[in-house]
Amino acid sequence: MRCGIIEIENLSVTKTVCGVLKQVNQEESDTEKAAQDGLSASSSTRRIHVCLNHVSHRFGGRTVFDNLSASISSGQTGIITGSNGSGKSTLLRIIAGLLEADSGDVTFETDGSYLDTQMRRHMIGMVAPDLTLYKELTGAENLTFFASLKGIKADRAMLVEALTEVGLRGRGRDLVGGYSSGMRQRLKYAFALLGRPKVLLLDEPTANLDSDGMAMVERIVRCHQARTDGALAIVATNEPRETSWGEPLIHLERGE
C-alpha cells in the first residue's frame, strides 16, 4: 500500500515540476498556475541551501584546492571560474557527491534537514565532459533507461518533448555512437533535465556546441533560474559569455 501512495505522489510531483517549467516557457493561464502552486506548495517548493565547508582536496601529494567555503541557495546561479587544472571539475564532482573531499564537506540542506548522498544525487542534474551516455544504445533508449532509474515513466510524448527541447527531434532512434560530439552534448542536457532536478551542475556547459546549441544551453539555464520551486544551478566555466549567467561563487587558483 505504501508503495502505491509513493507512486501517486511521485507522479503528481513530476507533473507539477514540469508544469512549472512550462509556465516559464509559455506563460500559461493563471488558473492552471494557481492549481499547480497549490499542488507544489506541499512538496516541491522547498528551498535548498548548498554549503561548502572548508573543502580541501589532494591528488597524490598535490593540493588541488584548500579550505574552500561558499554557499548558494535556491534561485541563484553560481559560477565557478579558474584556469585549466585548477580543479573546477573535481569541485563539481565533490558537490555532486561523486567524490569525497579529503577534508571538509558539502552539505545540501532543505527545511533544516541534511540530505544523504543518495537523496542528494537524486535532485541533481549534471552535464560534464567525463559524463557520457551509452554509445551502443539510441538516444531515446538512453533517456528511457535513465528515466526509469529515476522512477519516471518515459512515454513517447515525454521522450519527444525531451529530445525536442535539446534540438534532437527525429534523431532519437539513432545510436549515440553515430552522434557527433555536439549532438552528444545536447543529449547530455536531455539526460540532466530528466525529472526536472532542482540542482543543475554544469561543467563546461557549451563544449562542442554550435551557436544554436549555446543559445539552447542559455535558454535552459535561464528557464531553470526562473523556476519558482527552489531550483539552483552551479556552472563551472571560463567563457565570459557564460560567467554572466549568474553571480561568481568561487574562483579557483591553480594549486602547486
Partner: peptide, 11 residues
C-alpha cells in the same frame, strides 16, 4: 524531486 522517490526505498 520529492523525497519519497529516493533510491533508498527497497522496491
Amino acid at each position: 524531486m520529492k523525497a519519497s522517490t529516493g533510491p533508498n526505498d527497497a522496491s
